[in-house]
Simulated scan of single mutants.
Amino acid sequence: MASRKSANVFGIDADIVKKMNWPLAVKRILADAKSDFIYAPHLRFIYSKCAIELISIVKSELNAGIYAVGTPMTIDVPKTNRVRVANSKGSGPNFTRPGTILMPKDRLLYQILGDEVADLISDNIDR
């Protein structure tokens, strides 16, 4: 498995990073966590109790040009109702489905980038 250091790294101009609304991104992550497919209270704790430190780490890595995207966490999530899946190679119905969540640094960056382009996309979409 590749380490973060061997992955492609990138950065964002410090002036752009400084203008981004990081606290709003954290608030949106916390609001979205209530409906996440994977229940992860340990990650919610990071966003709610360590947001300032998380923001600082992401900003410093982006400013230094050393940010590396990590691997998402994927787990089998139990289904509430058993659903027989067509062409299933297993014997009987599937009891789980894969669910994926991003690690905190990647989730924060994904949210902040989405927030930055949301208005631009909304203004230019053909409704």
Rank of each mutant, 00 (worst) to 15 (best):
S60L: 13
E116G: 01
A64Q: 10
T80F: 09
V58M: 05
M73F: 12
M20K: 02
P23Y: 07
V85R: 01
K5I: 10
R84A: 08
D123S: 13
L108H: 06
T96M: 04
A2D: 09
A64W: 03
L24I: 11
K5S: 11
D123K: 12
S6K: 04
I38C: 09
L30N: 03
L102D: 03
P98F: 09
P72R: 05
E116L: 14
R44Y: 02
G65V: 05
E53R: 14
D126E: 07
D36K: 01
R127G: 04
R127M: 07
R28C: 07
N63T: 15
K59P: 04
T100Q: 02
K27T: 12
I46S: 02
K105M: 01
D15N: 09
D32P: 04
L43W: 13
F10A: 06
M20G: 03
F10V: 01
E116C: 08
S91H: 08
K79C: 01
N21Y: 09
R28I: 11
D126R: 02
M73C: 11
M73V: 15
R84P: 01
K59A: 06
D106E: 14
L54Q: 14
V17T: 13
P93S: 05
L62Q: 10
D123L: 14
D115Q: 15
D119P: 06
R4W: 02
G65H: 07
V69Y: 05
H42Y: 12
F45K: 02
G90Y: 06
Y110Q: 15
